[in-house]
Structures are given as structure tokens and as C-alpha cells.
Design a protein around this nucleic acid. Structure first.
Length: 620
DNA sequence: GACGACGACT
């Protein structure tokens, strides 16, 4: 067109820009900027809309600074920014959790005499809900009504999603009823949000009930509904149901999309079936679906898990060359991979590289980095990163604080951990059960078991939740002190509360018993685990007896001890736990004391086997 | 506005 000397019209210009900006490649967005300046040079009279498209592209790349600079220059070209301009950037900022910048921009918008419209408000609700600040989100909804902008289904759907993310399914359900009373009808998004929430936090039955309800109401399930179901069945390992759902999806005219494939690919990667993951990627290509940034990041994650860090790094570079959106998730994945495999210097280098590329770290990226620094024993540097995080306009979350508290505990600085904890509580940090567990283990590690017990009991008496990890932490510490009676009491207590016991509890007890030389008790304990399921509180009786006993007379190692231990260990590694148990019983009958690792291996096997049997149960 | 990828506690 240029060669032919034809002058493009505004429509041509905006159509082309739009196409470039929406096309899923970072190259095309870069091109859109070139095309834009070209259009101005050859004298096309661009309008506000042209700028809005350009800005949308910048936001796609998370270049908010650039977007705001462009917004500032629009006036010079006779194209004043409008609501769409502001909403575009606000949307990007809110989705990324950059609420401080969003607030500033909102102020600027009002100063320019533009009024927030329904979209603006909805964007803000999204921003607050993403951070889990539901009170603030509700305030925005209140503000809408005051400004005569009625909240719509979108608004409520976001709010429902916010409740679901925090596991507050009842409140989410209640809000849905509220919409119906407002004569707004819940749509497919409302249902999908709730169904996903039920699957993630509530009961799956509730979720399936909602699907039935949709069908009864004549509401068509869309690809998201199916993807939510696929994710659920994948999570439960129900391969048949996954296939059935995908088939149903195809029959109903919703072809499996990039999300469906990414879910399946990620699953295969997680269970180590890389071949099948690659097969799915081929299949995707044959069906004309282009892999996206999420697919890329899934593969990066899989490579890191397999310790193939060089390959992961190569993939990152080549993906960048080929125009994929390499983002903070890609970098975060690899940084975490390096830290996990003790390659801190490479992790730090990658962080700098990411910054050089102007890729903005998210809260998760910062948390990974903070965790890595703490892991290296450099909590003071982690604090620097926390400051940097705050400066960047992000809001630290529970994970950020818990990570740093854990860092201090790991260094043996429990005192500092508590100080930091208290200081942060004064800000807006809401300590949760993970915080408590971190402090508990920190206290135990430093031999302050009594303080830990006090913290643990206070938390329970205050009616705050404790979980399996809390119990296991205390049980482990008690066992190390050979206080088996109390340990068994807690074991029974956690069973009563349906919190366990799990393999961590068993591990704690068995390690304690074997370390104390109470091999007979360890053997009996293993047998109990094997029989478990017959009656509840079966460990209680054993625990009570423990206090009366005074340790055991050390025995001469039996000549077959090592041989039998090895045999059992080998059978366990082959997954032949039944055979392993047989040798175990034979050994105990002959009074053969086995190696410590054998007890732990057997226990691992026994807990694994129970898991798989219960899965089989669910299938029938 | 809903679904898929990276982060905390034994």
C-alpha cells in the first residue's frame, strides 16, 4: 500500500493496529508500535481510538509505565484520553495487583474531568478481589450505587469469585441468591465461578449439583464449565472421567481449547509422563491451536523439576526469540528451579536479566525470590527484597511474611521471627495457621518445646484453627524428647478432629521410637498402621501404656537383621508392600530388630497403599 | 467477570 503511494485511512490504520495488538505474539505488539509511528509520519489523522489500541498492546506486555507515558502525550496529538484509555490501563494494573498505581491513575482520571463508569468500577472490584480485600470490593459496590451506576452481573460475579477464592462458598452462594432477588439473572460465568469454587474448597457434590441445575435451567455449559470439570477429574486422578468429559465437550460443540490442553499437559508433566505431554502438544498443533505462554511455562516447570536447568534456560531464550510472551512467570519458574537445586548465583543473575528486560515481577515472583534468599540463609537480603516489593507498588501477602518468618526461624533467630511477626501484625498482616506452624517449628528447633506447647494450646483455646502440620510439629518435638505419652494423646486428638494422622505423624513417632531403642513398640506401631481403619483411637491405648514403660533392654543385633532390612527396603522400592509386610512379620516373630530406615520405608508404603485403595473405592 | 503455568509451615 505504501509502495503504491496510497494513503491509508484511519479505519485501515486502526484495523491493522488492532490485528497486531490482539495477535498472540510479542513481536506483533512491537510491530504495532512501529506501524503507529509510521502512520503518524505519513500523515494519517489518528484518533483517540488508535492510541487506545496502542496502549492496550503496552498493557498486554505489562509495560504500564510506557502506557501511562503514551496517555500523557495523547493531548499533544489532539486526541484526549477517554474512559477507555483509562479503563484499559486500570484493568491491566488491577489484574496484576498493582493497586497503588491504579489508585493514582484513578485520581488523574478524575482530575481530567472524566467520571468513572460501570466498567471502571468493575475493574476496581476485580483489583480488590484479586488481593482478597473483599471489604474494599464491597465498598466499591456501595460507591457504585451512590453514583447511580447500578452494579451488574459482572460486578457480582467478580465478588462471588472473591468469596470462592477464600473458600467462603456459603457467602458466595448467598450472594447468588441476592442477585436473583435483584432481578438480575445469574449467567454461565456465575455458575462456572461457583462450580469451580465448590470443587476447590467445598464439596464436589455441590459443584455437580450446580451443573445439574444449569442443565435443568436450559443453560448451555461452555468450554470453561468443561475445563473446570476436567481440572477436577485430573486432580482426582480419574482418567476415565477426564476422557469422558473431553468427549462430552466435543459432542456439545465446545472443542477442547488451549486451556483444556494446558490442563492435561500440566498433569502429564506432574506425574512424569513427559512423552504424553509432548504428544498432546503435537495434537494441539494438528488441531490448529497455537501453544501459548502458559504452555511454555508448564514446560519450563517440568524441565526444572527434572533438574534440566540448562534445557529450561535454552527454552526460555528460544521462546523469547520466537515471539512468545516470556513473562514474570517464566522467569519466576526458572529462578525457583535454580534456587531449589542450589544454584543461587544463576537465580540471582536471572532476576537481573528479567529486570533488564523490563519484565515486572509479580507478588509470586518476589515471594519466590524471598524464599530463595531465605533458603540461602540471607534473610537480611530477603528483607531488602521486601522493601523493593513495597516500593514497586505491590502489596505483600501472607506468603511473603510467612516466608521471612521461616527464614528467621531457619537461622535459629526465633526472637527476630517473633519481632518481625509482631511488627507486621501492626501493619495489615493477618497471621494464619501457616504462620503459627512456622513459629511452632522454630521454637521446637531451638529446644523451646514448652513455649511451643503454650502457643499451640493458646491457639486452640482461642478457637483458632490448627491443622495436621501443627499437630505433627508438636508430635515430632515430643517424640524427640521421648515424651511418647503426650505424643500419642495428640495423635488420638488429631484423629478425633479428623486431621490425620498422616505419614508425617507416623514418621515422627517411628523415628522417635527407633531412636529411643524401642524397637518392639515400633514394630507394634507398624502393625497398627497396617491394620488401621478397623477402629478409631486405636493408638490411644498404646500411648497410655507408653508412660508406664521405661525403655527397653538393648538387644544384640540378630545376624539376619541387615539382610531382612535390605530385603524389605527393596520390596518397598518395588511397591511390593504386601510381601514386605510378610517378611516384617516373620522378623518380628523371630525377635529380629530391623534397621530404622526399614520402619520408615514400610510406613511410607503402608500410607501410600491406603491412599490408592481409597481412590479405587471412589471409582466404583 | 469464570477455567490452565511460578510462591509459605512438618
Amino acid at each position: 500500500m505504501k509502495r503504491l503511494g496510497m494513503q491509508p485511512t484511519l479505519l485501515t490504520c486502526n484495523t491493522l493496529l488492532n490485528a497486531l495488538v490482539r495477535y498472540p505474539s510479542s513481536h506483533s505488539i512491537r510491530l504495532s508500535k512501529v506501524v503507529f509511528t509510521d502512520f503518524i509520519k505519513i500523515g494519517v489523522k489518528i484518533n483517540t481510538n488508535s492510541f487506545n489500541i496502542l496502549i492496550y498492546g503496552s498493557c498486554m506486555e505489562n509495560r504500564f509505565g510506557e502506557a501511562i507515558r503514551v496517555l500523557g502525550k495523547m493531548g499533544d496529538y489532539g486526541c484526549p484520553p477517554d474512559n477507555i484509555t483509562y479503563n484499559t490501563i486500570l484493568d491491566g494494573l488491577c489484574k496484576k495487583g498493582r493497586l497503588n498505581e491504579a489508585r493514582e491513575l484513578l485520581l488523574d482520571m478524575k482530575n481530567k474531568g472524566l467520571f468513572p463508569n460501570r466498567t471502571t468500577f468493575n475493574i476496581l472490584v476485580v483489583g480488590y478481589c484479586k488481593l482478597g480485600w473483599l471489604k474494599e470490593a464491597a465498598n466499591v459496590i456501595e460507591l457504585m450505587s451512590q453514583n447511580n451506576v447500578a452494579p451488574d452481573v459482572w460486578t457480582y460475579n467478580v465478588m462471588i469469585g472473591g468469596f470462592c477464592k477464600q473458600g467462603r462458598i456459603d457467602e458466595a452462594m448467598r450472594l447468588r441468591e441476592e442477585i436473583e432477588s435483584l432481578k438480575l439473572s445469574p449467567d454461565v460465568v456465575t455458575y462456572n465461578t461457583l462450580i469451580n469454587g465448590c470443587f476447590e474448597h467445598g464439596s464436589s457434590e455441590e459443584g455437580f449439583k450446580l451443573i445439574d441445575e444449569m442443565e435443568r435451567r436450559g443453560m448451555k455449559l461452555n468450554s470453561v464449565t468443561y475445563n473446570v470439570m476436567v481440572k477436577w477429574f485430573v486432580k482426582k486422578g480419574k482418567i476415565d472421567e477426564v476422557e469422558k468429559t473431553v468427549r462430552k465437550m466435543e459432542e456439545s460443540g465446545c472443542l477442547p481449547d488451549i486451556v483444556t490442553y494446558n490442563t492435561l499437559i500440566s498433569w502429564h508433566c506432574k506425574v512424569g509422563k513427559m512423552d504424553e505431554a509432548f504428544q498432546l502438544m503435537d495434537e494441539m498443533g494438528r488441531k490448529g491451536l497455537k501453544m501459548d505462554g502458559v504452555t511454555l511455562n508448564t514446560m519450563l516447570h517440568a524441565l526444572c523439576r527434572e533438574r534440566k536447568l540448562d534445557e529450561a534456560h535454552d527454552l526460555l531464550c528460544s521462546a523469547h526469540r520466537r515471539g512468545y510472551f516470556v513473562d514474570e512467570v517464566s522467569y519466576g519458574t526458572l529462578i525457583m528451579g535454580y534456587f531449589k537445586h542450589e544454584k543461587a548465583s544463576q537465580a540471582l543473575r536471572l532476576w537481573d536479566e528479567m529486570k533488564e528486560k523490563e519484565i515486572i515481577p509479580s507478588i509470586i515472583t518476589y515471594n519466590s525470590m524471598i524464599a530463595g534468599l531465605c533458603h540461602m540463609g540471607k534473610t537480611y537480603q530477603a528483607i531488602d527484597k521486601l522493601d523493593e516489593l513495597l516500593e514497586s507498588g505491590l502489596v505483600p501477602d501472607e506468603i511473603t511474611y510467612n516466608t521471612i518468618i521461616h527464614g528467621y526461624c531457619q537461622e535459629g533467630q526465633v526472637e527476630k521471627a517473633f519481632q518481625f511477626h509482631n511488627k507486621m501484625v501492626e501493619k495489615n498482616f493477618k497471621p494464619d495457621v501457616v504462620t503459627c506452624n512456622t513459629l511452632l517449628s522454630g521454637l521446637c528447633k531451638e529446644g523451646m518445646l514448652e513455649k511451643a506447647l503454650k502457643l499451640f494450646n493458646t491457639r486452640i483455646s482461642k478457637g483458632k484453627d490448627v491443622d495436621a502440620v501443627s499437630y505433627n510439629t508438636i508430635i515430632l518435638a515430643l517424640c524427640k524428647e521421648k515424651r511418647f505419652g503426650e505424643a500419642f494423646d495428640l495423635l488420638a486428638e488429631m484423629e478425633e478432629k479428623k486431621l490425620g494422622p498422616d505419614r508425617y505423624s507416623y514418621h515422627a513417632i517411628l523415628s522417635g521410637l527407633t531412636d529411643a531403642g524401642r524397637m518392639k513398640d515400633a514394630e507394634e506401631f507398624i502393625s497398627k498402621i497396617a491394620e488401621k481403619g478397623k477402629s478409631e483411637y486405636q493408638f490411644l491405648e498404646m500411648g497410655k501404656r507408653q508412660d508406664a514403660r521405661t525403655g527397653e533392654i538393648p538387644q544384640e543385633p540378630h545376624p539376619n537383621a541387615i539382610a531382612n532390612s535390605n530385603k524389605i527396603n527393596e520390596l518397598c522400592s518395588q511397591g511390593r508392600y504386601k510381601d514386605a509386610m510378610k517378611i516384617f512379620h516373620e522378623s518380628t516373630q523371630k525377635n529380629i530388630v530391623l534397621l530404622k530406615s526399614t520402619y520408615l520405608n514400610l510406613m511410607d508404603g503402608l500410607t501410600k497403599r491406603r491412599k490408592s485403595t481409597s481412590k479405587e473405592h471412589r471409582l466404583t
